[in-house]
Structures are given as structure tokens and as C-alpha cells.
């Protein structure tokens, strides 16, 4: 399936989607800068409550998961704007296969999401003194978490009917998944029922995996990556299924 021609078409589409992102940089820039500001302002509180090292780790991990969930809008709007503008059908009318369209859209968004997370980690390391003794484990979790975010965002982009709905979905949903996961406030400080339902949230697994990676717990990292990839596959399959519609037609609106 992935012939040279196929790879070239995907390359054309990736370039086009990078152009689209460059044309509207506001959402991306805000998702990059806001977490750094949040981290800088609130880290002293975490450090006072949990100690310097643990507080810094909680602040960085919590900020990364929270703001990466809030960045679901980038993935969602990448699909929604095509649907609303009816350009999705235009792309489907070209030589592009459905998988090529999805990869062409996914690569720039995936790169943006990963860049946001690496920026937060980098800020944590160089400005706040976060220690990362096992970088490959951390990168593994970040890659799997980015896949989950991509698929979750795509599913949102396929399900919602307008930008307002998308905004509400990732604002409310993102904060909910982040809070349930113990990103902003450690689960130990929350009511018992929150800890009981936390594993339902992909945010929980992201926090769990990032913390495990920072202490070098490879077994937990592998478990977390497995869960995150299963969630990614499930959301991705639902998104593709919804895209195809019931009559075999790719759904625009």
C-alpha cells in the first residue's frame, strides 16, 4: 500500500497541513506558552506542600497532562475545520486513500502535541531542576500519550457539530480527565471515590506512566504504554467508523 507515490502524496498533505497550522498559530502558541506560565507560577505551591523534588515532579507532570489534554482542540479542529469547510470530501475526491489523508493530517498534529510536552519537560529540567534519569522511558510514555491524544482529538473532531461544541468538549472534558487522573491535585489528596474511578481516565495512566518513567520503573511504563495505545486504537477505530458513516459515505456534516 505505501508505494513511493503514496508516500509523496502524504508528503504533499503534510506540507499543506503545516501550512494550515502556520496560518492560524494562535491555538498552538497559547498551548505552548500557557503551561510554562502555569508551571512557573504554581510550582512553589507544590514544592511547599510536597517538598522540592516531589513538588517539582508533580507540578511538571500535572501541568504536562492537563495542558496536553486541553490541546485536544488542535487535533479535533484539524478534522472539524475540514468537515465544516467541506474540504474533506475534496481531499477524498483526489487520489488520496483514506489512510493517507489521516496520516497526512496526523503527522503535523502529532508533532505539535509532542513538541508541547517536550517543551514542558525541557522547562522543568532546565529551569526548575527536574531530574530525568531515564530519558528513553520518558520518551516512550510521551509518544504513547501523544498517540492517545491524537486519537481522542480525532474522535472529538468527528463527533462534534461545530467549533463551540469542540471547545466545550476539550475544555470540560480535558479538565475532567486531567483532574480525575490526579494531574493537578494528587489522588491521595482527593476523596476516595475519585481514586476509585481514576483508572477510567486516560489522564490517570499518563500521570502514572510519567511518574514511573521518572523513577525508572520500566515494567509500569510498559503497562501504561499498552493501556494508552489500546485507548488510542479504540478511539481511532471509532473515529474512522464514524467518518465512513452508515451508507458507506464519508460523513462531512
Amino acid at each position: 500500500m505505501w508505494s513511493g507515490e503514496s508516500v509523496r502524496r502524504v508528503g504533499v498533505l503534510i506540507r499543506h497541513n503545516l501550512l494550515l497550522m502556520r496560518g492560524e498559530p494562535g491555538p498552538l502558541v497559547s498551548r505552548m506558552i500557557l503551561p510554562l506560565a502555569f508551571l512557573a507560577l504554581l510550582r512553589p505551591l507544590y514544592a511547599a506542600a510536597q517538598g522540592e523534588a516531589a513538588g517539582t515532579e508533580q507540578a511538571v507532570v500535572g501541568t504536562l497532562v492537563t495542558f496536553s489534554l486541553l490541546a485536544l482542540g488542535i487535533s479535533g479542529s484539524a478534522i472539524l475545520t475540514e468537515r465544516l469547510g467541506r474540504t474533506w470530501d475534496r481531499l477524498r475526491g483526489t487520489a488520496l486513500r483514506p489512510a493517507e489523508i489521516l496520516v497526512g493530517k496526523a503527522v503535523p498534529v502529532f508533532a505539535a502535541m509532542l513538541a508541547q510536552q517536550l517543551l514542558v519537560i525541557g522547562f522543568g529540567v532546565w529551569v526548575l531542576g527536574l531530574r530525568v534519569p531515564h530519558p528513553p522511558l520518558l520518551l516512550g510514555v510521551l509518544l504513547c500519550w501523544s498517540c492517545t491524544l491524537l486519537a481522542l482529538g480525532a474522535l472529538l473532531g468527528v463527533l462534534v457539530r461545530g467549533m463551540g461544541e469542540l471547545s466545550a468538549a476539550y475544555d470540560i472534558g480535558g479538565m475532567l480527565l486531567s483532574s480525575l487522573g490526579g494531574a493537578l491535585v494528587p489522588l491521595g489528596a482527593l476523596p476516595h471515590w475519585v481514586a476509585a474511578v481514576a483508572p477510567v481516565s486516560p489522564g490517570y495512566w499518563a500521570v502514572h506512566g510519567l511518574c514511573a518513567a521518572l523513577v525508572g520503573d520500566a515494567a509500569t511504563v510498559a503497562e501504561v504504554c499498552g493501556v494508552l495505545l489500546v485507548v488510542a486504537l479504540a478511539c481511532g477505530a471509532l473515529a474512522v467508523g464514524r467518518l465512513k458513516g452508515r451508507s458507506g459515505r464519508l460523513v462531512a456534516l
Binding site: R15, L19, L20, G85, R90, T94
Partner: peptide, 19 residues
């Protein structure tokens, strides 16, 4: 069905590239 923020030239480059 056009991309509002994309120039005319880039529209043609996109579809020419896909062709």
C-alpha cells in the same frame, strides 16, 4: 470548498502535488 487562509497559488500547488 476552499481553505480560507490558504492562497490561491497554494491551493493549486496542493492539488497539482496530489495529481
Amino acid at each position: 470548498a476552499l481553505y480560507n487562509r490558504v492562497s490561491v497559488r497554494e491551493h493549486l500547488r496542493l492539488f497539482a502535488g496530489l495529481a
